[in-house]
Amino acid sequence: MSRSIVVTSGKGGVGKTTTSANLGMALAKLGRKVVLVDADFGLRNLDLLLGLENRVVYTALEVIARECKLDQALVKDKRQPNLSLLAAPQTRNKTAITAAHMKALVEVLSRHFDYVLVDCPAGIETGFHNAIAGAKEAIIVTTPEISAVRDADRVIGLLEANRIKDIKLIVNRLRPAMVKNNDMMSVEDILEILSIKLLGVIPEDEQVIVSTNKGEPLVLSEKLPLAGIAYENTAKRLEGMDIPLLDLNASSGSVLSRLQRWLTGKS
């Protein structure tokens, strides 16, 4: 059974596109046939994060307008042939696209791929409604910040109102040291507030920027950085595997913290 999942957040800049690229690539590495659909019409970026920008000839717009065949618009990743990209048009003529178009597009793609991952634009206007139109499930990306969590809550409400009930959360850009000092909401805090299932926790990692610069998703790195491992684990959980969360405090497992655990009897 094919799964169509929209990756959304409400707020911009929380890592939707990075998450889409890495989850898509990680699922492809697990042997799944994955298509990434950039639904951010007019402001496309997914092709850049994947390093596929030079290979985009046709976009979703031409497919919808029947100016090309679907497989002409799909860019197959040479590094990972299980992964394809359907790019968004960069033109501003995005009013021509409706929710019905997107729904039809996702339905056709579902026949050919195990996963259709739709990278949603920021905001909750037309672009958002188009992006969620064909999706059966949703992944919410948030960061441990007040504005991102608030917007995530709003989007969860909108998804539920649009009959998308299977919603999972990824907490991105977590800084364990700040959480430890109670200067950042913990994952537990966010889960308590949003009351949805947790899919993964991605630590803040400079390598994300490095990988973006190179156009090579983290999970393709030979030696996976911490965020890359976290994305792989998240993909495995999406596949139904029971993978425990990374111990992000492991690097600070100092003598002090061990002494503390011994004194307080907490393991």
């Binding site: 007040i146 959480v179 430890k180 000092n181 109670n182 200067d183 909401m185 805090d189 507030i193 503390q260």
Partner: peptide
Amino acid sequence: FIERLFTGKNATASGTKVKQRLK
């Protein structure tokens, strides 16, 4: 006390405040 001593966690830090505001 030991937790406070080692983790430096205290209720006046911004993490507590942000949770209240969000709720």
